[in-house]
Design a protein around this nucleic acid. Structure first.
Lengths: 230, 230
DNA sequence: TTTCTGATAATGTGATCACAAAATGAGATT
DNA sequence: AATCTCATTTTGTGATCACATTATCAGAAA
């Protein structure tokens, strides 16, 4: 069991060791630092995070509950494997959830929030230009999250983040082998539709954004990526 | 902090204390044994479950991750409060998720599985006749779960179960004050549509089932229930 | 009466230990 | 060479303890 390097993360004053461990592991999985099928151990991660096992155990309970990791029958903990069919389910679910979330956010968005979303979209392009795919992934998520959390009563974000997390490891492989992951997007259409407060158009733009973005990987492409990572 | 009586649950040979604690607490929340806003403590639950605090701590990390419980800023753990607006978001999300899941299951359902679903629907009616609302809720969930899990690559069930869990406490109040919670349903239409392998009709029947079932509680009705429980 | 202060109690956090369960590797047997 | 057995190692689980943080309560001051 070799723990990959975990991307560093700021630890604010007063943040508990458990919260820090959880945030750091979650981030690592989200940006593809762990490959599908990778085994992890409590003590190995505790060492990498420079903590005792207790906070790591609790973080692992959380990570398994949100689909980022998986407890096996033999009690081992692994990064879930993914098949092309499951990838397709993840994309379809992402489309269902995010178009639903976008619809229900439209009525709540202020002009200021829309300008904020535009700024985030610009930052995605900066990151792409810079060649930093993980940062582009994070910025892309911030773009989507800022739209959906405009709805003050939304409860869908934890579900969406869980789907994003489950896509992390395969996207990590893709980021190593594909250079234009976030070039195609429909963010402009989404922003135009937000300005018009047109729920249908927003939902359609978000769905198209996902379908034509990472959803463009068909089953053959996913199988190829998985083979590359074996 | 008074722990309500936790419904008993079978503990199979070899089941870890943690898994038992988690399953028992999850079930209790699902069937409405805990009221919204109820505070829980690690030691209190450990005592009720006759275990040491460690397995309970880990179970609480899981339960908070799936929306069943909530860590507050002051580190206290509570059953989440719910507002009428959040209830409406839960219903809308349930409709979005479950009609999506039903659609994607249709192609996978065998005749035998459909007969199994019919049998579960009959058992719901038995439970209603018997006046056992918690058992009817569990059977209703089994009806839905059996449809959606026909899709072997589905990944949506943990998300659906999280929404069900978040509805548990308010439904617990409803079960105390309303006697006909599961009388209205559209299960027959859903079954007919499954037999015809008609994805649109299945999705419509599931959506209508939710909307006309517990979705029939409008914001005023929810507010009234919350007042009754205060 | 209300507000403030300080002591005490309650509750979550992290560390450590012992034990249970599963994996691994070496040697013996087929 | 393949399979089995057993000892050792690895890894997860549960218990317990001490400590940190937050809540509560009683008494004093305004």
């Amino acid at each position: 069991m070799k723990t990959p390097p975990l991307p560093l993360l700021d630890r604010p004053e007063g943040m508990t060791t458990h919260d820090y461990a959880f945030a750091r592991l979650r981030q690592a999985i989200m940006v593809g630092s762990f490959r599908p099928g990778t085994s992890v151990t409590i003590r190995g991660l505790a060492e990498a995070l420079e903590s005792s096992p207790t906070p790591v155990r609790e973080a692992l309970r959380q990570l398994t509950s949100i689909g980022a990791l998986q407890f096996l029958e033999n009690r081992r903990i692994v990064v879930p494997r993914i098949t092309p069919a499951r990838f397709e389910e993840l994309i379809a679910l992402r489309i269902a959830l995010e178009s639903h979330a976008a619809r229900r956010a439209v009525a709540h968005l202020s002009e200021r929030q829309i300008e904020r979303i535009v700024a985030i979209d610009d930052s995605i392009e900066d990151e792409i230009r810079r060649g930093d795919q993980a940062a582009a992934l994070i910025a892309n998520q911030a773009f989507h999250r800022t739209i959906y959390t405009a709805n003050p009563d939304q409860i869908v974000m934890p579900l969406i983040e869980s789907v994003w997390l489950q896509l992390g490891p395969i996207l990590g492989i893709a980021m190593e082998h594909v250079t234009e992951l976030y070039v195609v997007d429909r963010h402009r259409e989404a922003i135009e539709a937000l300005r018009r407060r047109d729920e249908d158009a927003v939902a359609d733009a978000i769905a198209a954004d996902i379908r034509e973005g990472i959803g463009g990987f068909d089953q053959q492409a996913v199988a190829r990526l998985l083979k590359l990572a074996a």
